[in-house]
Write a protein that binds this DNA or RNA. Sequence first.
DNA 1: ATGTCGAAGAATCTTCGA
Length: 270
Amino acid sequence: MPLTIATWNINSVRLRIDTVARFVEAYRPDVLCLQETKCMDGQFPLADVKRMGFDHVAIHGQKGYHGVAVLSRYGLAEVDRKGFVGKQDARHIAVSLADGPAAGTRIHNFYVPAGGDEPDPAINEKFAHKLGFLDEMEAWEALRVGAGSSKAVLVGDLNIAPFEHDVWSSRQLRNVVSHTPVERQRLTEVAKAGGWVDMMRELTPEPEKLYTWWSYRAADWAAANKGRRLDHIWLSPALAAGMGGFQIAKETRGWDKPSDHVPVIATLNL
DNA sequence: ATGTCGAAGAATCTTCGA
């Protein structure tokens, strides 16, 4: 019996809760990991997500910015929230599925720092923070293959498009934060250190383009199609052995009042 | 490619973050 898991940077869960419901109605994911919820835990629209069928919810929010959440049709256990680089800024939550077809699976949901505009850690402390955050991810034992559970998933808005065909023009974005060589290298090292399989690229190799984000600033996002793959689904080898397909719900970018990110949905055969 | 969003505090705009 398969498990479906989705990741989506919702850019305010309160503003877009009806959009979440519309997506859930269409795709029926078993687990939905959200980023940029932008609200404190007490403000989270719990009643709404329970109406969608998510009886189990784990949230890590803060006032106004960042914030992550896991919504699940199955029970959740071992909820952990880690701060990185000496900050407590609601960019990570981990859960284990307590029952259902993927019982025992560990899920890490991340919102990696965007990193500001200037790709130089010496003059931009946001970029330095992003690189430090990635260093801590690489060093964290809990993200190593086999740590805790052989069945593990790492999802989220990692704010990096690591490969040439993860952006519309690798050449034009080579000095743009999200696609600089140092970030691309660092993210690749995080995946390698943890033994993670990049599910989307495993199933859809380069040079096919894959995007999950289109800027709000484009006059016509669909016509320009200057996207980036910032959102990721990584699997431990044990889960990768049974991976099904994935979908990028691009049509949601064209809905009313959209997020600038679209959901990615993975099917895992257990 | 410097445009468009969203939250929040003070106010119907400004600032910050993305």
